[in-house]
Amino acid sequence: MMKLTTTTALFTLAASTAFAQATVQSCDREVTFDAPPQAAISNDVNLTEMMLVLGLTDHMVGYTGISGWNKLDAAMREGVDELPELSAQYPSKEVLIGADADFFFAGWNYGMRVGGEVTPETLAPFGVAVYELTESCIHIGEKGAASMDDMYNDLRNLGAIFNVSERAEALIDGYEAELDAFLASQPALAPAPRVFVYDSGEDAPFTAGRYAMPNALIEAAGGVNIMEDFEKSWATVGWEAVVERNPEVIVIVDYGEVTAAQKRDFMMSNPAFAELDAIKNDRFVVLEYVEATPGPRNIAAVKTLAAAFRDN
């Protein structure tokens, strides 16, 4: 697991270049910044980690949406030690305004809901600029399938917004090189293993379609998401579709009150799944929520998946 404070310490020097007006694409909007935000708030663990690895805690007044979902691990806890959590789950408009925020890094279903009280439009009159998580843009318009470039795009845009583009590009280059070197060392897979992402749910599973980050992680690792043709991000499907597509590997997303072990036990003990290749061969992989959603730990997630796909 990466050490957030170590990464941040690499970038303690202030940017040497003067800030020029920055315009970035945020879903279907262009957002212009005349100066770097000084009172930023991020929502959710993965978005907050993007801020941390870019060394932006001095520009933050807090974060939201982590402890209420049981997502805070040791590395994350140390990284945000000096920042307050302003809301355990999704923040209200009053929470953000009350913190005198000038910037909110969130996404659709990552702190904002379509038609909800916290949106770019509702916050704009109060001087709070919003940058939207790229992966989440599918909820308000058209977008291609999730890719590793979604996460890199967010780091690059945050770099422009906060005048730390050199840091962002250095991180992206490092992530790409690390991943390329690791994957080049792995034996080829033929055919690609069929993979099912099990987030939660017993009556019907909540899973990752083509627009959710695990689709990109699985593809990068050499597998194929059995729901890659499901025109959704994170959504519920029927168990019948899972059985019909017969996954060879099941990826469990670990967070919340139901543990990864309990999710595995549910699938292993249910007679309806007994003939699935993944069940017969007991092939499960566990990813933490922060690994399965867009953020710096996607690199480790691809490595974990790639190794698991080849361990049969």
Rank of each mutant, 00 (worst) to 15 (best):
T5A: 08
T7M: 08
F11L: 11
L13R: 12
A15W: 13
T17K: 09
Q21S: 15
Q21K: 13
A22Y: 07
V31D: 12
Q38F: 02
S42I: 07
T48K: 02
M50S: 10
M51F: 14
L52R: 00
L52A: 02
T64V: 13
E82V: 01
E82C: 03
L83D: 09
E94W: 06
I97G: 00
N109S: 09
N109G: 06
M112T: 06
M112I: 03
V114G: 04
T119P: 02
E121Q: 12
A124D: 13
P125K: 02
F126T: 03
G127P: 01
Y131R: 02
E135V: 08
S136V: 13
K143T: 08
D149K: 04
D154L: 08
G159M: 03
G159N: 04
F162W: 02
I172W: 03
F182L: 01
A184F: 02
P187Y: 00
L189M: 04
P191E: 09
P191T: 03
P193N: 03
V197K: 02
Y198V: 04
G201M: 10
P214E: 07
P214L: 05
A220I: 14
V224S: 07
I226N: 15
E228G: 03
T236H: 04
E240K: 09
R245F: 04
P247L: 00
E248M: 07
V249R: 06
I250Q: 06
V251D: 12
Y255N: 12
E257V: 03
R264P: 14
D265P: 08
D265I: 01
M267S: 15
S269G: 14
N270R: 13
A274S: 15
L276V: 01
K280I: 15
K280W: 11
N281Q: 05
V286E: 14
V286N: 11
Y289L: 15
V290N: 10
V290R: 09
E291I: 03
P294L: 14
G295C: 11
G295F: 11
A300L: 01
A301F: 09
A306Q: 12
R310F: 12
D311E: 15
